[in-house]
């Protein structure tokens, strides 16, 4: 099941009529003797939400920094909004919105002043900035905190302000690097809602994440990055269909010995297409759940709990990279 050669994004779907907003081929970033991004190819089309999924250090942020024209590529080709970041960095940056991994707001200033100052970086006239700032505060549900300093705001509010700020220049393309990392579940859902709204209004989103549920919820298409390369590409559904089985049987055991014995037995019994022993559970990937359950019932030490579920992106990631994302 593990593919020998990485799939390539540009080969995935039919050619669109409109030129892509981002086009990358053999895109490479090296720092001295370390290769952060190793010859990746992908395209992002207008109006889609495109994701880079991968563990920390897979090369997602380096890719985003090249797209955002703050880091020059070492090799390969890159076009953003039809322009080459080499020589057009300023123009491109003026037309995109960037939500960085770590909030970089002016925390000693008010919410309002943060928007005002940021708008000025784009050389926008003050009355335009004020009008947009009012709208964006509504959008980010921060109108009531308008005159408050940023410092004491919650993590979710700061994130929403960072997103609002990134929209000041009405960007054609919005880059979000790990948009919900470090937020509690409630704040994450509120943020997702805001991102859905942007998507509905036709925005093009490019985001990185190491949360599979986030990738599954938000992305029309995504690529999985592992060790500086793209190892799979497609829609979440297509990736699951292509790389994972229909269902997964998750087993938990009282002891680690019982888990290891069971994993071995299930493997020998060919209980499923693949058996994966993780830290706390054994996963059996199967297209024939009845057969698998029969093998599970035959185990000498029965599992403490059994869960049958549909495959998710997490399984795709595990199948392809051999690791879970939080490892």
């Amino acid at each position: 099941m593990r593919p020998g050669t990485p799939a390539v994004a540009s080969a995935a779907v039919t050619e669109p009529a409109e030129p892509p907003l981002i086009h990358a081929s053999s895109l490479t970033k090296r720092f001295d003797d370390f290769t952060a991004v190793d010859g990746i190819d992908f395209e992002v089309r207008r109006g889609e939400a495109f994701g880079f999924l991968g563990a920390n250090g897979a090369g997602k942020s380096s890719t985003m920094r090249m797209i955002g024209c703050v880091s020059e590529r070492t090799d390969g080709e890159l076009q953003v909004l039809g322009l080459d970041p080499r020589g057009h960095g300023t123009d491109i940056r003026g037309r995109i919105g960037v939500v960085p991994q770590e909030d970089n707001l002016d925390t000693e200033l008010t919410v309002w002043d943060n928007l005002l100052i940021y708008g000025r970086y784009f050389d926008l006239p003050r009355d335009v900035i004020r009008r947009r700032a009012e709208e964006l505060l509504e959008f980010a549900q921060l109108t009531e905190r308008k005159h408050d300093r940023v410092d004491p705001l919650s993590g979710g509010m700061k994130r929403r302000l960072t997103i609002a700020r990134a929209l000041m220049n009405r960007p054609e393309l919005i880059l979000l690097d790990e948009p919900t990392t470090g937020l509690d579940p409630q704040a994450r859902h509120l943020l997702w809602e805001r991102l859905y709204q942007l998507k509905r209004e036709g925005a093009t989103l490019v985001l990185t994440t190491h949360y599979l549920d986030e990738a599954e919820q938000l992305c029309d298409r995504l690529v999985i990055m592992d060790r500086a390369r793209i190892v799979a590409a497609g829609s979440p559904r297509a990736l699951i269909d292509a790389h994972a089985t229909r269902e997964v049987v998750e087993l938990r055991f009282a002891t680690s010995d019982a888990r290891d014995d069971a994993a071995l037995a299930l493997e020998q019994d060919a209980a499923g297409a693949r058996v994966e022993a993780l830290a706390e559970r054994v996963l059996v990937y199967t297209d024939d759940t009845d057969h698998t359950m029969g093998r599970v019932d035959a185990l000498i030490t029965p599992p403490a709990s059994v869960l049958v579920r549909r495959s998710t992106l997490e399984d795709v990631y595990l199948m392809i990279t051999g690791r879970t994302l939080d490892e």
Binding site: V70, D91, N104, L105, D106, Y121, N169
Partner: peptide, 13 residues
Amino acid sequence: MRTYHAMVATPLD
């Protein structure tokens, strides 16, 4: 605060 990084993400360098 990484505010310089916010600036260089805009047309400023």
